[in-house]
Computed example of a mutant assay.
Amino acid sequence: MAEAGVPTAMARVATNAAEAADALDTFGAPHVVKDDGLAAGKGVVVTNDREEALAHAQACFDAGGTVVIEEFLDGPEVSLFVLCDGRTTVPLSPAQDFKRIFDNDEGPNTGGMGAYTPLDWAPVGLVQEVIDRVAQPTVDEMASRGTPFVGVLYCGLALTSRGTRVIEFNVRFGDPETQAVLARLKTPLGALLLAAAKGELDQAEELRWSKESAVAVVVAAENYPDTPARETASAA
Rank of each mutant, 00 (worst) to 15 (best):
E3H: 07
A4W: 02
T8H: 13
A9K: 04
R12C: 01
V13N: 14
T15E: 09
A18D: 14
A20C: 08
D22P: 06
D22T: 12
L24H: 05
T26Q: 11
F27K: 04
V32E: 03
V33H: 02
V33S: 04
K34D: 05
L38Y: 07
A39N: 06
A40M: 15
K42E: 14
T47S: 11
N48M: 10
N48Y: 07
D49Q: 12
D49K: 06
E51S: 14
A53Y: 01
L54H: 04
L54M: 12
D62K: 07
G64K: 13
V67R: 05
E70M: 00
L73I: 09
L73C: 08
L73K: 02
D74Q: 08
V78D: 03
V78F: 00
S79G: 15
F81I: 12
V82R: 02
L83W: 02
C84E: 09
C84G: 10
G86S: 08
R87W: 01
T88N: 10
T89C: 15
T89W: 07
T89Y: 03
L92Y: 05
S93H: 10
P94N: 13
K99N: 14
R100D: 05
R100Y: 00
I101N: 09
D103S: 11
D103E: 15
N104C: 05
N104T: 07
E106Y: 03
P108F: 06
P108K: 10
T110F: 00
M113A: 07
M113R: 04
G114W: 06
T117M: 00
L119M: 06
D120K: 11
A122H: 01
A122R: 00
P123M: 11
P123N: 08
V124N: 14
G125L: 03
L126G: 05
L126W: 01
E129L: 12
V130C: 03
V130W: 00
D132W: 08
Q136W: 01
D140L: 03
M142E: 10
M142L: 10
M142V: 04
A143G: 01
A143M: 02
A143K: 03
S144N: 05
P148R: 06
P148W: 01
F149C: 05
V150F: 02
V152A: 11
V152G: 12
V152E: 13
L153T: 08
Y154K: 07
Y154S: 11
Y154C: 11
C155T: 13
G156N: 11
V166Q: 02
I167C: 12
I167Q: 08
I167V: 15
I167F: 03
E168N: 12
E168K: 10
V171L: 12
R172F: 08
R172S: 15
V181L: 06
L182C: 06
G190H: 08
L193F: 02
A195Q: 11
A197D: 14
G199A: 08
E200L: 06
D202W: 05
D202F: 09
Q203K: 12
E205M: 05
E206K: 02
L207A: 11
R208N: 08
W209R: 03
S210A: 15
V215L: 13
A216G: 06
A220I: 03
A221Y: 05
N223H: 10
Y224I: 07
P225T: 11
P225W: 03
T227H: 13
T227I: 11
P228R: 13
R230W: 00
R230V: 11
A233R: 10
A236S: 14
